[in-house]
Design a protein around this nucleic acid. Structure first.
Lengths: 149, 149
DNA sequence: TTGTATTTAATGTATATACATGCAAATGTA
DNA sequence: TACATTTGCATGTATATACATTAAATACAA
């Protein structure tokens, strides 16, 4: 459905302005559907994302600031997200020996389990929420990459 | 820059999963840059959006629930947003005569002023944040519309 | 070395959001 | 009419987020 009809706005200043609105709206479409997915396991989407970052380390610890850099939402607070995950025993946190300012974070076995439990559902959700062919999806990925410059 | 490099993730399950991540990431790219724009005037992006919805009514009042329907972020609370705008004298709120459950909302002259003040900056921001040609931008708009089905 | 600046993470605080609940008005039904 | 249901909005509450500040460790320059 055209964004103009979705939000009942007849015209936009130009395609660029329309695009920003379209992106914000499409984001909302995705995240509002996502909530049903994450809620049962008591994780937020961004907590799930941090677990994925940690698993991608394959056992190698990573600092809080490196997690922050890789997070999808740059504004959210890696330190507090890690604290939430630690409370659920999904991550370990220990002082970095080479630099005592830093804190090494690692995913636990339980964290890996929760991640796997969620992952199949997330994959299926992502597949279904996007009503595009594979070729269109590839095209969209390329345009988004280019958009950010 | 490729999303893989931005978040240092080598591969994705499939293009659809990559796309959802790419959308979340691109959203964050936009909104984190947006904050500098809105902060000086003490409005949030969603408050700005509500003012635009109200102006689009051309004097015709609109109810809180109709505002909610048109908002970009379906999860946020129109009632509280309107209250914030009212505190700044940017909107009027009065009981709907035909149905006393409903509340008619209208933008004030001051609201229109603030909107115009912001708008030029928002247009320029949107134009600059999107590093695409006009033709690519149109293409991206179409793909996003199709994505949502 | 000493003092200053920078980096890293945690925390304080105000606001925003998600979600549930409450309440009043309207609607539907017997 | 009486009474249950639905609708529209406001609000309570817990959590999340944005942004600033703090505290500790390190780097760096005089």
């Amino acid at each position: 459905m055209r964004i103009e009809d979705e939000i009942k706005q007849k015209t936009f200043k130009d395609p660029y302005n329309k695009l920003v609105v379209n992106l914000l709206y499409t984001h909302s479409y995705i995240v509002s559907n996502q909530s049903a997915l994450f809620k049962p396991l008591g994780l937020s989407p961004e907590q799930y994302n941090v677990l994925r970052i940690l698993r991608g380390q394959h056992g190698k610890p990573i600092t809080v600031s490196s997690i922050q850099e890789r997070m999808l939402n740059k504004m959210s607070n890696a330190s507090r997200l890690v604290e939430k995950l630690k409370q659920k025993d999904l991550v370990l946190r220990e002082e970095c020996p080479s630099d005592r300012r830093q804190v090494d974070i690692m995913i636990t076995a339980k964290g890996l389990e929760v991640l796997e439990e969620l992952e199949t559902a997330v994959y299926a959700f992502n597949r279904n929420i996007v009503k595009l062919t594979e070729s269109e999806t590839n095209q969209l990925n390329e345009l988004l990459d280019k958009l950010r410059g």
